[in-house]
């Protein structure tokens, strides 16, 4: 149990996908302008990360590894994720239209989001069990959510300030991301010490 908590907390704070592993930077810079879209996008990411892990982990363990096909991992995972996202979209549209309305726009974007492919591959590389892998995916998704929501607040403050001309737009956003990421460095080592 303690191990699961450590995995969850370190995925959220220490190995934050956006701010320390640099995965999913495109949505982080693109969709973080408004709080609504930042939250919508991250909830869709959490959802797809969990689904993708639940689908790819058994494929890797029971299909690819026993048949000595480990080298097909990249191709199989990206196809499974792409098909899964399509499937989720169709199912949502048919059965839960209200949810589809709020998350639907973000779903196709997620197929080529490196955070989702990243989490599925990292789960295998780290040698997690199925439960640990799911917890890690949840933590990673929550970390993404936290970074997006925090950063959308930072960005709304930047909007109103006086910025040198050449720094306007993307450069100042990246500098702000640097400072946000600096604050996350402070979490390093906290979780291990907390649970001894």
């Amino acid at each position: 149990m303690t191990k699961l908590i450590i995995i969850l907390l370190s995925a959220v704070f220490i190995n934050n996908y956006v701010l320390s592993r640099f995965l999913g930077i495109c949505p982080f810079l693109g969709v973080s302008k408004k709080l609504d879209s930042a939250a919508g996008m991250s909830i869709a990411v959490i959802f797809v990360m969990l689904m993708a892990t639940a689908a790819t982990y058994p494929i890797q363990m029971y299909l690819l590894v026993p048949n000595d096909l480990g080298y097909l991992q990249t191709i199989v995972f990206i196809l499974v994720i792409a098909a899964l996202v399509q499937l989720v979209e169709i199912v949502l549209k048919r059965f839960i239209p209200s949810l589809h309305k709020s998350l639907g726009v973000y779903l196709p974007l997620i197929t080529t989001n490196c955070a989702v492919l990243g989490v599925t591959i990292l789960n295998i590389d780290e040698g997690y069990t199925f439960v640990e892998a799911m917890v890690n995916s949840l933590g990673s998704g929550l970390g993404f959510f936290l970074a997006m929501v925090m950063f959308s607040g930072v960005r709304s403050t930047i909007e109103g300030s006086d910025i040198p001309k050449s720094f306007k737009g993307l450069p100042i956003t990246l500098i702000a991301a640097a400072i946000t990421s600096l604050s996350f460095l402070g979490f390093g080592g906290v979780v291990e010490n907390l649970f001894g």
Partner: peptide, 22 residues
Amino acid sequence: SIMTMAPGGFFVFGLLIAAVNK
């Protein structure tokens, strides 16, 4: 050392794009 860590990456990237803009 911070330059090789995560924040340094964002920082240098921001500076480079600003330089290109300039």
